[in-house]
């Protein structure tokens, strides 16, 4: 009876594929060193959970979650438009911490650390997705659609402009392109997908609290994208499987239960470092940032 467990892992992987491929759109293709992606994920999760609790139909809440995250994406680019490189990374990291503190402390809206329990499973057009199997199909559909859309975007002339922004922003400006516009469009699309991934996550786990949307999650997302390779959709997908399945594989390692927790973490860190040393540009990386 391995299937329920695999289904669960595949659902998580599906959600993370959306997250990391969309992060790669901003980080890899556009060169926006965004460490605040997890904030969009959280905004999406909370928006969708709170809206459905308030009686809004799931599909509408799902879309609004994406749009709402997208608006924050726009604001973030607007606020940080003068920053580059490490400083942009720091500002976006700061942004994600600020969103986290709001989730944690704005108890009137988010219930703070108490979290939101009992988030309902999605239902639309008269059907409710209650079993994990049907949830997997739902996630898979959304995931494939999202990857397809992002794939089309990066292969389009717009996508090439994004890559040009990353490689030579000055040059593009000289050609009369408004790079700010390109950046915020890329960030808004990226945030939109993170937002719907948040909605998928919230309605799957059914209980969310702010602790899901903080540092360990940022590290996880960033590791996946970097290990997969900058500006490689294929890389991010493969890497999501690799990074999420390593800890699962470690569960089958016969470790004595007294040291199981830290020993797994040690091995995980070693594997991560090993992959980085073997493939410093990521599994399918073709470009470098900076």
């Amino acid at each position: 009876m391995i299937w329920p467990y695999l289904t669960h892992l595949l659902i998580l992987i599906g959600i993370y594929v959306i997250l990391t491929v969309s992060l790669n759109l901003a980080l890899g293709y556009t060169g926006l060193l965004n460490l605040g992606h997890v904030a969009f994920f959280g905004i999406g999760a909370y928006t969708s959970a709170l809206l459905t609790k308030a009686g809004v139909p799931f599909l509408l809440a799902f879309i609004i979650a994406g749009i709402f995250a997208s608006i924050f994406g726009y604001l973030l680019v607007l606020a940080t438009r003068k920053l580059k490189g490490d400083y942009l990374a720091l500002a976006t990291l700061g942004f994600s911490f600020v969103i986290y503190s709001l989730m944690l402390n704005w108890t009137g809206l988010t219930r703070g650390p108490l979290g939101i329990p009992g988030i309902e499973k999605p239902s639309f057009f008269g059907l409710t997705i209650s079993s994990t199997y049907s949830y997997l199909i739902f996630v898979a559909v959304i995931c494939i659609l999202s990857v397809f859309v992002i794939y089309r975007i990066v292969k389009s002339p717009f996508g090439r402009l994004l890559e040009a922004t990353r490689d030579d922003e000055m040059g593009l400006r000289v050609l009369g392109k408004n790079t700010f516009k390109l950046k915020y469009k890329a960030m808004m699309i990226s945030a939109f997908f993170a937002g719907i991934a948040g909605s998928l996550f919230a309605h799957y786990i059914t209980y969310i609290d702010p602790s899901y949307f903080t540092i360990p999650e940022i590290i996880l997302l960033l590791s996946i994208v970097i290990v997969g390779g900058i500006a490689s959709i294929k890389g991010s997908i493969v890497s999501t499987f690799v990074i999420l399945l390593i800890p699962e594989a470690l569960r089958f390692l016969a470790l004595s239960s007294s040291i199981l927790g830290p020993a797994r973490q040690v091995i995980y860190a070693m594997i991560l470092l090993g992959i980085l040393l073997l493939r410093p540009r990521g599994i399918f990386g073709r470009v470098d940032l900076e």
């Binding site: 590791s223 900058i230 973490q265 991560l272 470092l273 980085l276 410093p280 540009r281 470098d288 900076e290």
Partner: peptide, 16 residues
């Protein structure tokens, strides 16, 4: 390796 890779590596060292 780019600086972002070094950043991830440094986090790996921290976890380790």
């Amino acid at each position: 390796a780019s600086n972002v890779v070094l950043l991830i590596a440094s986090i790996g060292v921290l976890i380790l």
